[in-house]
Every structure is written in C-alpha cells, then in structure tokens.
C-alpha cells in the first residue's frame, strides 16, 4: 500500500514537505466517534480524493483541515501550519469551495468575485500574483454570459460553478472541495473535471476533494483515500486499489432470507466450507471476481445499513 502516514516526518515524495499531513486525527461529537484515527498526507501538486459513503466523516475531516472545525485529538499540518491556529496569512494561501444556497442573492457574479478577490490583493507575491481578475475566473468556470445577472437567478449548477470560482479567485496553493459536483449535470461535471485538471497542471494547485462517487474519484484523483468507520481504509491510485481488490473473489449468498457477502482469495475453499457448514440452507450463490466498484459498493451498503465497522474491514480483507 502506498501510504505516507507510516513515515515519521511529514515529508512526501521528493523530500518536499507535505502540503497536508494528518496523523491520528480523531473527532468525537458527544459520545459518538466520527473519526477514530485518520492518517494521510498530500504532496504538493497532488489531486487527492477523499472517498466514502455519506456520513463517513469526509466533511468533518475537510472542515478540520480548512480550520473551520476544532478536532478532538491528533496532529494536523496544512501548508506547515496547524489549521486550528492558522492566521489570515495562512488563510490567504488556501481556497475553499463552499456549498451555498442563497447568499449574496442581489449581487452579480462579476461584482461578488471582484469584491471577494480584493481580499487577496495584499497577499500577492511575485511568484503568485493574487487574485485572478473577475473576468478571468468567470471565463475559467464558463459563466461569461451570466456574469452580470443577479446570483438569485442562477440555476443550482450555475451557482455551484460560481462557488468554484469564489474558491479559486485567490489563486490558492491548496484548494478544498467538499462534494463539488453535487447537483451538476453530466456536461457541467465534465467541464468541472477539466477545470480541476487545469488548476492542478498549470497552476500547481494541490487539491483535496471529497466525493461519494467512485467514478468521479477515478476520473479526477491522482490518489484515492477511502474513509470508512472513522479511518482511512485504503490509500492509493485508482490502479493500485483496483489491483489490490482484483484477485479477490466476491462470494454472495443468502441464508434464511438474509444476504451475505464475503471477499476471499480462494473462492472454492470458501464455498466448500460454506456448504459443509450450512448445506441446503445456502441459496442465491454467486461467485465473481471483485472489481474496485464491487468492493466499494459492498462497503457503502454495509455502511448505510449502520455497520460502519464491518464496512471498514471490507477493504482490509481484500487489501490483505
């Protein structure tokens, strides 16, 4: 497995300091543990996707990294700073794409981008001129024709594009996106993916995004982190994860009206044992090679049926 977190120093590949370094991150709301020990790091210029079922703690994790939420325990470094104590200078180097719903209804996109971009002017450096001009960033998200309309008149998808524009207007070194394509049509989604690639390739922007959609994670990310049961259960490129789960077979069956799924490297032995144990009670038997998608869907199902711990071990089993 391709994991930075076991190293002692917050260095990513190439000896450069990691942009994001998280170790032993825990979060507890009342008596409920949402994060039980999250470890990962993100190197400069990487696009990393935090993938997981709804309620797995993706938003909590990203909000802790954004400095919007206090953690219960653990070490977190974002651009070399603890986000709980990140000042305004640190803030200027990050970009956050928020999911808004009716703010600034009377403003036009152009006016709002010019205003919010203005806050970054004092943080402009010869190396990184800040902010983008309003026109430039409007063109980047394809809102040219709507730039002078009241924001209240934008559709949900158009509004999300404005959210992205606001997130990048300060030319961030690190960009956070929480479920960025929720509510996008397929066309807007593809344009958004192009934009992410462009930001990462041309602007050297490090990008951390969350999604519950595996396909999107595969298309966007250099590396996928799967969050389940309060911890990272898989960490690698889409190919690495696919290779880890291939070679495993997935056995599905039902017994007494209840459905079961088991991943195993030796399906024959497992099925033989299954019949030896339960005989005629076993029904609906199905054996097939697990794809990454199968494994992920199994995990999501287990998570949604309230069994977060079992969901977390699904990947452990297949990843050996």
């Amino acid at each position: 497995m391709w994991s930075q977190s076991q190293q002692d120093e917050p260095w990513a590949n190439g000896g450069e300091p990691a942009v994001v370094d998280v170790r032993g991150l825990r979060m507890r709301y009342g008596s409920k543990d949402v994060l039980t020990g999250v470890d990962f790091s993100v190197a400069r210029g990487e696009v990393v996707c935090l993938l997981g079922p709804n309620g797995a703690g993706k938003t909590t994790t990203i909000e802790i990294l954004e400095g919007f939420r206090m953690r219960s325990a653990g070490q977190v470094r974002v651009l070399g700073v603890d986000p709980a104590r990140g000042g305004e200078d640190w803030r200027a180097r990050t970009g956050v794409v928020l999911q808004s719903w009716r703010d600034h209804a009377r403003w036009t996109s152009r006016r709002l981008l010019a205003h919010l971009g203005g806050y970054y002017t004092p943080y402009s450096t010869p190396h990184r001129a800040r902010p983008y001009g309003a026109d430039e960033v409007i063109a980047m998200v394809g809102l040219e024709e709507l730039a002078d309309q009241k924001i209240a008149t934008l559709s949900g998808g158009q509004r999300r594009r404005l959210d992205v524009a606001i997130g990048i207007v300060g030319r961030p070194e690190l960009l956070f996106l929480d479920e960025p394509t929720a509510g996008f049509d397929p066309h807007a989604r593809r344009e958004f993916h192009d934009l992410v690639h462009r930001l990462s390739d041309l602007e050297d922007t490090t990008i951390l995004l969350t999604t519950h959609d595996l396909t999107e994670a595969e298309q966007l990310a250099d590396r996928i982190l799967i969050l389940a049961g309060g911890r990272i259960v898989a960490d690698g490129t889409a190919d690495q994860l696919a290779r880890q789960v291939a070679g495993e077979a997935q056995v599905r069956w039902s017994r007494g009206g209840e459905d079961f799924v088991h991943a195993t490297p030796d399906a024959s032995a497992f099925v033989r044992q299954l019949f030896a144990q339960y005989g005629d009670e076993v029904a609906d038997l199905e054996v097939r090679r697990a794809s990454l998608e199968d494994t992920y869907i199994t995990m999501v199902q287990q998570h949604e049926s309230g069994d977060a711990d079992r969901a977390a071990t699904t990947f452990k089993e297949v990843a050996r």
Binding site: F68, D89, R91, G95, W101, D103, H104, L116, Y120, I166
Partner: peptide, 20 residues
Amino acid sequence: SEREDGTLLRAKAVPRGLVG
C-alpha cells in the same frame, strides 16, 4: 440569516473577510 445562508462563511474563507 447570513449566518444560515453561508454569507458569513464566505467571509470567513477569505483572508480578513470578517473584518470586511
């Protein structure tokens, strides 16, 4: 209402946005 609709969060996400 601007705390609920995210206006304030936008201000918080930009440097010294809350001052503004």
